[in-house]
Design a protein around this nucleic acid. Structure first.
Lengths: 193, 193, 193, 193
DNA sequence: CATGAATGAGTTTTCATTCAT
DNA sequence: TATGAATGAAAACTCATTCAT
């Protein structure tokens, strides 16, 4: 009944990609399903062969996006490096991801997902943030970071990141290499002990 | 024809308040107009005597909210004080505003308004941020703050603020006085020269 | 949320009447809601102000129909009469009802309602048949009727009645006064001791 | 173009059997074609190699069912016997058929077929009932049965039969041997002169 | 003026049928 | 020949907006 299995993965991806672009731009409630289908170049009914409902589509997209971003954040971050170096790499990863896939972050961070996220998606979100949280917790214990709690630290850094994206998105500033380096340095001062 | 003027301001406010609660919770597209009318205890038709359309209502609400928040941010900030003191006051104002009117910030910051904001609203937003921007620009010129551009500075601080709100909203942390003071100190380190 | 209350009873009745005609002809699943609305001369959305769903409409119609028919069956049946007389009156009531409101019986008896009837409707059906069942049970106890159980007796008589309706409906026979009297006599022989 | 001929009779029967089960339970309009195909363990497209349309399938099923039942009714009815004996045998045949193939009668009698039956099906129905009608006509001429017309007689007996099935189906009574004998006797009294 | 019942265009979703494999 | 993924027309239902009262 619930066709979560994918007979044609490329079509499934096309639908997810179309949904990403539209949800990022207009939000979940502001996007009509036939519009997603049209952008994915499939019939409206076809979409329902891959996702049981509009909500199921949004959840699948949310999970794919969360995993993609959180994987990218810690990519090539060498645990042997100093925390200073790891933070620099992490920050650059985040901005590189934004450059490569701006829609993923626009979808994840510019919108409020509460009204349709299911348990599974919340779980995925928790798991995705786990490694980052753990890293911060260890760094705070070691005394390199301020003892303000890993959640607070994440909220500050990630909030600032989203703030920059949003400002860039709305044309208030441009994410030049200088801005990236400046903000990275500033945030390191904010969180380092 | 276009009844932008309101014969009964209290009724208009009731509609805006109802819209605030519902838009903050479910977003613009997820909220039905008759529901707003019901919550405001007016007839659905009456709402249209005060606002030309659902979009017009959302824009009016956005403007009221932006102005309310930006006024609160600089409230009682003494220009004679040190910038350090002014920043502390500003930060506390932001969190006090959140405590008093959490829905206003939930509406403004948890949702994406692009799809319905009109020129007027964008203008109001610009104007509301002007004084803060000017203050930061002056502080950067004077060398108290890092020379990272007032927009970047605002994006960092305000983004971090929203990040904290969001994390609190989703239950990851609690905005205790200690957290407020810690984050204020951390962000001052981030932006001060 | 569920608008079972009726602001305009005549419109509600118009919808029920339209649904009766269409459901009787094409059945529940074979009838589109907009068709019902059109026949009732209301907008498609209006129908949903009076009935929460297509199922709710069908249940309301079922209940109205069951009550109408079961009331008609025992109408003016004098408990002082002989059972023979009461049966004759009952039989004539059933056929008179059919003549007056053929659609009600077509809806009730030509279709299968299982897939959408709710608990309330089943209860109404039970209650509607109660008096008839009781009458038959008493008559069997008194020895006037064969001791075959009131349910069996009802099934025979009512089944034969529906069989006649169906045959008439399909053009195999005509319900003339002679047929009505003949069948009444025949069925009396079937059930009387 | 119209593949009324079937290359593989067993597959055709599987489809008819699947349709029988589903149509009996949910009715024609309430049953999805892919569901029929799935239950028949054939592809959805295959079904259309055996039946030109959903309607054609329903008509074929109706005809098969009508013929099966009407054949069963007069099975082993010895024309040399008394009419009393023939009626008894007929009645038992009907109930035996119900016991063996309850779905066939549920499909035929619990639903209304008007909206999709074609001319051919109506003809088959007529022909199937012919022998029974002829037998009754002869019996009425001979004076053994009441002179109420063979159609009326059939409507009474067959209607009562369906009434019993329906009551049993809905749990109001159980078709025990005693009930079967009692009703047979009662109906004989109803129709015999 | 205020209302809220009425509406029809728009929403999500289903399904009879086709056709590329 | 058999398949089942694909489809778009149509289903049930919602909602921004209007207008008679």
């Amino acid at each position: 009944m619930a066709p979560m299995a994918a007979p044609d993965a490329s079509k499934r991806d096309a639908i997810l990609d179309a949904a990403l672009a539209l949800f990022a731009e207009r939000g979940f409630h502001g996007t009509a399903v036939p519009l997603v289908a049209e952008k994915a170049k499939v019939g409206a009914g076809t979409l329902y062969r891959y996702f049981a409902s509009k909500e199921a589509l949004a959840n699948a997209l949310f999970q794919r996006s969360k995993i993609a971003f959180s994987s990218a954040v810690l990519k090539d971050v060498d645990p042997g490096c100093s925390l200073r170096e790891m933070f620099r790499k992490t920050w650059r990863n985040m901005l590189a991801f934004h450059k490569l896939q701006p829609l993923v972050l626009a979808f994840l961070e510019l919108h409020h997902h509460r009204s349709y996220l299911d348990q599974q998606s919340l779980l995925v979100e928790q798991r995705a943030l786990g490694p980052i949280r753990d890293l911060l917790a260890a760094a705070q214990k070691s005394g390199v970071l301020k003892p303000i709690g890993p959640e607070v630290c994440m909220a500050l850094v990630f909030g600032a990141f989203v703030g920059l994206l949003r400002a860039a998105h709305e044309g208030f500033l441009s994410l030049t290499p200088k801005v990236i380096d400046d903000t990275e340095a500033a945030l390191w001062e904010a969180i380092s002990a």
